[in-house]
Amino acid sequence: MTITASVTLTINGEDVTREIEPRETLADFLRRDMQLTGTHTGCEMGVCGACLVLVDGKATHGCLVFAVQAEGSTVETIEGLSERGIIGDIQAAFHERNALQCGFCTPGMLVTAHSMLAPPGVPTREEIRDALSGNYCRCTGYEAIVDAIEAVARQRAGEEVAA
């Protein structure tokens, strides 16, 4: 009675094959089947940004993609980004600036921050706010998040110049 399909993909560097229901979203698949609970679901309709993960390197709402659609894709979650050490400076800046309170939006915020900081250059505060326009935070009032991202951008730009 239950319809299932096989899906094979790479999650945080690990090849994974699972038999799942096609109706399972990538967010639910990561949280339930893979126990990667750092991907949060706040609205399940692509509005709040808490479920953002990288799919083939691009920030993607885990709740707007069914896991079967990610067949053959490379998925990276907050856990993978953390363990790879690639967002260590962003996490440190968030910590230092207290750019999080309850932490529920934070993984999505970090994915957005990672994506927007990938190209070189220091974005303006308006550009940072624009990039965050799809990430909802109820606790901080956003300013600390903007501050933290701005600080990392400056720090990275400075390091590049120095090198």
């Binding site: 692509g46 799919v55 691009k58 993607t60 709402h61 994506s115 990039a131 799809g134």
Partner: peptide, 9 residues
């Protein structure tokens, strides 16, 4: 059009 992540897909 919406937000960066929506525009990605």
């Amino acid at each position: 059009v919406a937000h960066p992540a929506i525009r990605n897909r």
